[in-house]
């Protein structure tokens, strides 16, 4: 009886309280918006940085992920 019972993988786990999720949710959302913006739209429709280097560098990814370009 020394073997600890492994916690069940699934439905038995209690839901994570929303107040524990919230700060991480904000962080993940900000990160996602920032990253997707730079890959999907920077120096196309809008520009944070001058020039076209960011656009050109991620250009293939932008097209192949289906974002509007050109």
């Amino acid at each position: 009886m020394t073997v600890a019972t492994r916690p069940a993988v699934s439905s038995d786990l209690p839901a994570i309280p929303m107040r524990d999720i919230a700060p991480w949710a904000i962080l993940a959302a900000l990160l996602a918006v920032l990253l997707v913006y730079f890959v999907g739209a920077e120096q196309g429709a809008w520009s944070v940085f001058a020039g076209t280097d960011v656009h050109e560098f991620v250009h293939d990814a932008r097209h192949l992920l289906g974002f509007p370009c050109h």
């Binding site: 890959v39 999907g40 050109e56 991620v58």
Partner: peptide
């Protein structure tokens, strides 16, 4: 460029 773009969206 392709890899960095895909990795950013993947992350």
């Amino acid at each position: 460029g392709l890899f960095v773009g895909l990795a950013a969206v993947g992350v």
